[in-house]
């Protein structure tokens, strides 16, 4: 995390005072945001995490049940299915989106006419409202007569997949939809980061005889690592939390083929009114995501190259 050692050993009063001022100045920067964040986000979060150890139906008394909710997870087949599906979704979405968005950004970083237009077009899917996107996407992948399967048939595929109507293909369909919708978003971050690479680096590399691949490999990629780091974390977290897209596109179906952890949490809370158990599932998700995030932060020092620090 680029953790700098805090100079905690304040020996003289003036030094201590300077440290205090420093802290206060820093807190004053954080305070406006922290205040709103703590009241409206952190407090509810702490409350609902506490619920993981309780039993509550949303109306009657809350009672302490300790680890009961977590024990229940073992026998919950839907939880196991949802966990597996979530991991599938993350494993599919994260690398695909990163590769596609980096590719788009590289392509649009070329000196070409009309790149503003292309950039805007590529950003379109991210802006579109989900209800419309889900309908359109299902339409294009319509099993019998949708454009995608028509194309596949002309290419000689006799039995094209039934996409969202099939338990085997529903998840890949959702993954494709999410990559399509999300890559414009991450492309923007990559584009901004690409603009931050000093042109002189490329020029001197050229003088040294580096070819295009070498320049990409030894200049672009390393210089993009802060952005890549940010994107990989945000994308991982948001993929673990996938909800809206699945709710609207497949509602977890066929059967439970695309049921994911957040959808399960939601159903447990809103169909079974087991808010404690629902929080317990969220805790598992939280632990999973935080575990991965912390590992990513730990690894950051090895591969992310900030221009100083």
């Amino acid at each position: 995390m680029g953790i700098m050692k805090l100079s905690t050993r304040a020996t003289t009063p003036s030094k201590r005072r300077r440290q205090l001022t420093k802290n206060l100045v820093a807190y004053s920067f954080i305070l406006p945001n922290l205040l709103g964040f703590a009241i409206f986000t952190l407090v509810p979060i702490v409350f609902s995490l506490g619920l993981a150890f309780m039993s509550w139906d949303g109306a009657n008394e809350i009672s302490w049940v300790g680890l009961e909710n977590f024990k229940e997870l073992r026998d919950d087949t839907t939880f196991n299915i949802a966990l597996r599906n979530t991991l599938w979704y993350v494993a599919g979405t994260v690398p695909l989106t990163m590769i596609c968005s980096l590719g788009l950004a590289m392509l649009l970083n070329q000196p070409i006419r009309g790149r503003n237009i292309f950039r805007t077009i590529y950003f379109f899917p991210y802006v579109a409202s989900l209800v419309a996107v889900a309908a359109v996407w299902n339409m294009l992948f319509f099993p019998s007569a949708g454009p995608v399967n028509e194309l596949l048939r002309t290419l000689g595929v006799d039995n094209p997949p039934r996409w969202s109507a099939s338990i085997d293909w529903a998840m890949p369909t959702v993954v494709m939809a999410s990559v399509w919708k999300g890559m414009g978003y991450y492309m923007v971050i990559y584009l901004a980061a690409l603009q931050g690479i000093p042109a002189i680096l490329y020029e001197s590399a050229k003088i040294d005889g580096a070819n295009a691949w070498q320049r990409f490999r030894y200049i672009t990629l390393p210089m993009l690592t802060p952005a890549t780091f940010f994107i990989s974390i945000m994308l991982t977290i948001s993929s673990f939390k996938v909800f809206d897209l699945i709710l609207i596109m497949t509602n977890g179906g066929p059967g439970r083929a695309t049921n994911v952890l957040v959808l399960h949490t939601y159903n447990v809370a809103f169909r079974r009114f087991e808010f404690g158990y629902s929080s317990a599932i969220a805790m598992v998700l939280f632990a999973l995501v935080m575990g991965i995030t912390i590992v990513q932060f730990y690894m950051e020092k090895r591969w992310v190259e900030y221009s100083q620090v």
Partner: peptide, 22 residues
């Protein structure tokens, strides 16, 4: 009392049968 949860199970199994997944 458990009609919400039961309905969800019925919906899921209906979905599986009707998509001819099972």
């Amino acid at each position: 009392p458990d009609v919400g949860e039961i309905e969800q199970i019925l919906n899921e199994e209906h979905d599986l049968i009707m998509t001819r997944s099972v």
